[in-house]
């Protein structure tokens, strides 16, 4: 499954980039993520609960931040394994400043889902993947807006 999208974020590019690198922000925004522990250079382990409505599964995941070119570009790689199967997702994120207080985030993603979920849920996989990935960025946006309100 592949796709792309873009979203306008409140904040200057350096601030936005910094937030995206923050494991606490990632924990809040990655679906069903309770906590992330650092296990290597820019590599985290997390327990994710991924799914839609009642169809949810627990995944033991590794999240790595790669190809970092601050503050414009990085790649987020997620690999999760669980009872329902596995998830391999890669997102390439590019940031462009719109002005001093707004940043455009464009992303392209490639996701592969395997195991039981793929064998049984292929009807909805493409759509749900698009949805969940879009949700991640919406949460990032909300997180940034909240941060600004506090500030």
């Amino acid at each position: 499954m592949t796709g792309n999208g873009s979203i306008e974020l409140n904040g200057p590019i350096e601030h936005v980039f910094h937030k995206l690198m923050d494991p606490e922000v990632l924990t809040e925004c990655i679906m069903g993520c309770k906590s992330m522990e650092l296990v290597g250079e820019r590599k985290y382990r997390a327990d994710l609960s991924v799914g839609i409505a009642a169809v949810k599964g627990k995944y033991d995941a590794y999240i790595t931040v790669e190809e970092v070119q601050a503050p414009h570009h990085f790649k987020l790689v997620v690999h999760g394994e669980g009872g329902p199967g596995y998830v391999d997702a890669e997102g390439i994120i590019d940031l462009t400043p719109l002005d001093e207080s707004k940043t455009q985030l464009t992303y392209t993603y490639q996701a592969e889902v395997g195991g039981k979920v793929a064998a049984i849920g292929q009807r909805m996989l493409g759509g749900v993947a698009k949805l969940l990935i879009g949700d991640f960025f919406k949460k990032i946006k909300k997180n940034l807006e909240r941060g600004q309100q506090i500030a």
Partner: peptide, 8 residues
């Protein structure tokens, strides 16, 4: 969904 353990 329950039988296939797609939900707990």
């Amino acid at each position: 969904i329950l039988n296939m353990r797609l939900s707990s």
